[in-house]
Design a protein around this nucleic acid. Structure first.
Lengths: 223, 223, 223, 223
DNA sequence: AATGAATGAGCCTTCATTCAT
DNA sequence: TATGAATGAAGGCTCATTCAT
C-alpha cells in the first residue's frame, strides 16, 4: 500500500473494501431506502419489506443495523432534519450583510429559502412530521431543534444585522424572522397542493416577491 | 310512547320512523367514530375494527353505509372540512365593516380565526390532509374547495371592504388575505408542537397581536 | 325432524343448523387439531399454521375463537386434563368394594388405570405438562386439580373402604394410594420409552401385577 | 509484542497451550451456557443467540464446536445424563452392605437418592427428556443407558446383597429396585410441582420415609 | 480458531373485506 | 338492515445457519 493513499477508505483489494465500507454502505442504503419509502407511503403504510427491497438488503439486516421500524423511522427523520437544516443554513449564508438593492437581495435569499422548502425531501419531512408527531413522543422536538429552531435563529440574526445597519426597523428580530418566513411561504401550500404537485417557477417567484414586499412595507425604516 | 321518551335508543314501536332515524343515527355514529379514530391514529393505523367498536356497530354495517375504509375516510375528511369551514365563516362574520379601533378589531377577529385553527378537529384535519394528500387523488382539492378557498375569499372580501373604506391600503386583496393569515398564524405550529401540546392563552394572544401589528404596518394607509 | 329432536341445537333447515352447530363444530375442530399438533410437536415447535391446516380453518378463525397461541394451549391442556380425569374416574368405578379374589381384582383395576396412563393422550398431556409447567404460571396447578388430585382422592377412598372391610391394613390411605399408583406404574416410563414406543401387553401386565403384589405384601393384613 | 503487553487477554507468549486450553474452555463454556438456557427455555424456545450470549462467544463459534442446535442439544443431554448418573452412583455408594439399623440406613440412602432427583439439573434433564424424546430418535435410549439403567443395576445389586445377607426377602432384585425407587419418589412430582417449586425438607423426608416403610413392609423377611 | 455480518424462511398476529343469516 | 363468522393477505420480527474475514 502506498503510504498516503487513503485515510478514510481502506484501499487494498475490492473485497476488504467492500466489507469495511460495505457495512457503512449498507447502513446508508437502508437509510436512503427508508427515507424514500417512508416519504412515499407514510409511516404506517410503509413496510419493512418494501424498504429492504428498495435497499437491496435482506430484512433482518435492517433489524441488525437499526433495530425495528420505529427506530428506523426516528433515524430517518433525524437525518432528514439534519440535511434539510444544512440546506437552509447554506441558503442563509447568502443573506446580504450590506445590501446593494435591499429588495432584490431579500427576494434572492427568500427564493433560496423557499427552494429549500419545496423540495421533495422537505415536503416529505414536513408531511411525516405532521402525520406522526402525535405517535412518536419527542419527535417534533428533536426535529425542531435540528431544524426550524436553527433556521429561525440564523434568520433572526441576519435581520438584526440589517436593522443595526439601518436598513430595517425591527423591534423583535425573532418575531420578524417568523413573519418573514410566514410571508414568503404563505402561498406554498396552496401552490404545491401540499407538495403533491409541481409548481410553476414564475408563479412561485411572484408569490415570494409579494411576501418580501409586504415584509418590507412593514419593516422598512419610515423615512 | 311519548315523543321525548328515548333520545338515545330508537323505540321499538315505530319501526319505519325508528329505522329511518336509526339509519341516519348509525351513519352519524359511524362518521363521528371514524373521525375520532382517524384523528387519533392516522389513516393507515386506524382499523375498521376500532371504528366499529367506537361507533357501537358491527363491522359490516360500516361497509353497508359507507363502503370501505377509503370511502369512509373521504367522507370523514369532507365532513371535517365542512365543519371547519363553517366555524371559520362564523368567525369571519364578526369582521368589522367599519371599525372603531382597527387594531383591536383585527386582533379580535384574528383571535377568532386562530381559535378555529388550534382546535383538536382542525389539527386533525390538517394532519390527515398532510399525511394522506399524496395517497388520495383529489383529496386536497376537495378539502381546499370547501375549506381554505372559501376562507381566503371571505377574508379577501372583508379586507377589500376595509380598504375601500380607507382603513387599509391594499392592492391585491387575495394576497393580503393570505399574508394576514400567514402572519397571525405564523407561530402556531411551534407553539402547539403541531397540535400535540396545549397552548398558553396569553402567549398565543401576544403572537397573534404581533402578527396583526406587522400586517398593519404593511397595509395601513401611509398617512 | 322429530319435535323433540334437538333441545340445544336449532333444528330447522340445514344451513342454520350448519351455522349454529358450525360455530361449535369449528371450535371443537380447532381444539382437536391443536391437541394433536401440540402433542406431536410440543408447544413452541407447533405453529398456528399447522393447527389451522389440521383443523381445516383459516388462521384468524383460531384467533377469533380462542385468542392466540397461549390461550389455545391452556384450553387444550384443560380439556385434556378433563378428558383424562374422566377416563381415570371411570376406571376407578370398577374398583372392588367387596372383592372376591383381592389380588385379581386389584390387578384388574390397576390394568385399567395403567391403560389410562399409556394412551397417546395421557402421554401427550404429561409430556406437555413437564415441558411447559415452568413457562405457564398456574398450568400445573390447574391440571393437577382437574386430574391427579381427583384420582388420588378417589383411589384413597377406595383403598380406605377395603381397609375398613378388613381386606387391607392401611394407616394413611392417601399415602397408600400414592404408593399404589407408584408401584403399578413404576415400569411404564422405561417400557414405553416415555410414550414414544408401543408396549407389549403381556410384559405390561406382568409389571403391573408385580406392582400389585408388592403393594399387597405391604398392605395385606398380617394374618 | 512486548511480553507484558496485555493483561486481560491470555498472554501471547504461550499460544499453543493457551489455545488448547482456550479451546476446551470455550467448549465447556458453550455447553454450560446451553445447559442453562435449554433448561430454562426448553429446546425450541431456546435460541442459539441466547446461548452464545450466555457463553460469551460469537454464534459461529458454537457451530464450529458443536455443529448446530440439534447436536448441541444432544451433547447437553448426554453430559447432563452423565453428571446426573455420577451423582446417583455416588449416592448409592453409601448403601449399607451390612446395616446396623436397616430402616434408618435405607432412609438415609433414599434421601441421598431423592436429593439427586430434586436438584435443578435433574429436573431440567427430566423435563427436556419428556419434552423432546419424541423429536430426537435415540435420545431417550442414550440418556437411559447412561442414567436410569445404571442406577437400576446398581440399586438392584445392593438390594440383592441385602437379601443374600438375610436382611430382605427379594425374589426379583431388578423389580424390587424399581419399586424402591418408585416408592421413595412417589410424592416428588406433586410436592415440587414438577420442579417448579422449592420443597420443604421435612415434608420431603416424611414422604421418603413413608416410601421406605412401605418397601420394608413388602420386602422384610416374614419372620 | 473466532467473529461480524448477512440472509431465507418462518412465526404470531392483525387487517380489510365478504358471506350467510 | 345489521350482524356474527370467516378468510386471504400482509406485517413486524426472530431464528438457525452460513460466508468472508
Amino acid at each position: 500500500m502506498s503510504p498516503a493513499e487513503t485515510t478514510t477508505t481502506p484501499p487494498a483489494a475490492v473485497p476488504p473494501a467492500a466489507s469495511a465500507r460495505g457495512r457503512i454502505d449498507k447502513r446508508r442504503a437502508i437509510l436512503a431506502a427508508a427515507t424514500k419509502v417512508f416519504a412515499r407511503e407514510g409511516y404506517a403504510q410503509a413496510s419493512v419489506d418494501m424498504i429492504a427491497a428498495e435497499a437491496g438488503v435482506a430484512k433482518p439486516t435492517i433489524y441488525n443495523h437499526l433495530g425495528g421500524k420505529e427506530n428506523l423511522f426516528r433515524a430517518v427523520m433525524e437525518e432528514a432534519a439534519r440535511d434539510s437544516s444544512e440546506k437552509v443554513q447554506a441558503a442563509l449564508r447568502s443573506f446580504p450583510a450590506d445590501p446593494g438593492d435591499l429588495r432584490a437581495d431579500l427576494v434572492a435569499v427568500a427564493m433560496r429559502l423557499v427552494d429549500c422548502m419545496i423540495g421533495e425531501d422537505a415536503w416529505a419531512l414536513q408531511r411525516l412530521l405532521y402525520a406522526e408527531a402525535g405517535h412518536f413522543p419527542g419527535l417534533y422536538e428533536s426535529v425542531l431543534v435540528t431544524g426550524a429552531d436553527r433556521t429561525a435563529d440564523a434568520l433572526a440574526g441576519r435581520l438584526a444585522r440589517l436593522a443595526n445597519a439601518g436598513h430595517l426597523e425591527i423591534a423583535d428580530p425573532v418575531r420578524a424572522a417568523a413573519h418573514f418566513q410566514a410571508l414568503i411561504g404563505s402561498e406554498i401550500p396552496s401552490l404545491t397542493a401540499l407538495g403533491s404537485r409541481p409548481i410553476d417557477a414564475s408563479t412561485l417567484e411572484r408569490a415570494v416577491a409579494a411576501g418580501v414586499d409586504t415584509f418590507l412595507r412593514a419593516f422598512r425604516p419610515s423615512r
